[in-house]
Nucleic acid binder design. Structure first.
Lengths: 118, 118, 118, 118
DNA sequence: GTGGTCTAGACCACC
DNA sequence: GTGGTCTAGACCACG
């Protein structure tokens, strides 16, 4: 599992972890019910504090992306479609707000489409 | 000069000011060499601390958007085209990285274009 | 780390800090990737306000001399040679402009060299 | 009389005026007892506040570079040699402190001399 | 009145 | 404990 972290971004580390794991789930790199690394081992792997990984896992569990079963470990949800949808919706929201920025600058949607076709 | 601030955003206030002023320059609401409000008066206007405005002005000066002359005031650069270009380029870069995110998720440019046509 | 400050100089304190740290980096007193004191601790050490140190660190980061990672600390760049070169080049520029002043006054380079040999 | 002002320098305007006039006197562009522009006309010329010119003239008078005679105008001193000497000494002091900077950086006087011979 | 600097100190998120 | 942001306000030089 390759998780890219950027310590200089304003986005906190735990959110970056959440985002990366959601992405892997969406792409079905992680299969339903697959076991993922323990908090401790991932923290070691990434060279960060276990608390940070823990926080990411808590959020992912809250979102229904993963399930933690005491003494057994942490597993990907069996309902991957939900994750996919949420992740996409999230990206589309970002796109919408970016479009908004473009329009505030006097650029039309067509200008953006032109760029996209490049 | 209407500067909209959102105190709830993760984006700090001084960056919002930077962004808004760049926008006004790009839209040519501000003309070259035009005087802009003093640090103090803008702070008063926005109901924030002068230091916050100062920081925004410092960044804008660093970027070459404004020029400040001690005891005289602060003025828009005479090279507005540069600002326009940079601001647009900045947005396009954001777009590119967003497209990248889409593609990492398995969505094509056409999916984005469809969204744009809504 | 010994940083000498002169509160009477026209040069602001934060610039003096910048200059001193650049000097230590140039002299390789600081090694690449070495951790430097936190904003707070240095401020305490020097008997000045943390904001003043913060401003110095911001400038150093902008110049590429240090890298600061939120919640982790501040570190010397791994590219010290660049700093050395820039610092020297900066001094030579000052020398050149001083020579220029001398020449504007009708003094030759030899007059300066004579002085240097004292 | 061409006086170059740089509004972005830390050096205040009045000091820049002082320095420029001293320079012209040293170079004998101004002759002893020559009349120089009135405060008002020079201020108009430079596009600055008369108070600023006034302050420069006050300092110059204090230094013995010029003499103001009420209702008659302002005149260059008849003792130009004194001005020359002072101006030179001032430059040499700057040189000394620059050399000091070089040495703090680990460069020797010979390094500077090499540069000067270029 | 204008910008430049600095202090004192607060609150926050993050780790 | 660390950096990031912001407030409140002071003092100064300059013009």
């Amino acid at each position: 599992m390759v998780i890219n972290l950027d310590f200089k971004k304003r986005e906190p580390i735990y959110e970056q972890i959440v985002s990366e794991i959601e992405r892997y789930v969406s792409l079905e790199v992680f299969k339903p019910n697959e076991k993922i690394p323990s908090v401790r081992s991932l923290a070691l792997d990434l060279g960060i504090n276990p608390n940070t990984v823990k926080k990411a896992y808590d959020i992912l569990e809250e979102k229904g992306v993963i399930v933690t079963i005491s003494t057994k470990g942490t597993f990907i949800t069996d309902n991957i479609d939900l994750v996919k949808k949420e992740k996409q919706e999230q990206l589309f929201k970002q796109l919408d707000s970016l479009i908004n920025e473009f329009e505030k600058l006097g650029l039309s949607r067509n200008d953006i489409i032109d760029r996209l076709k490049k």
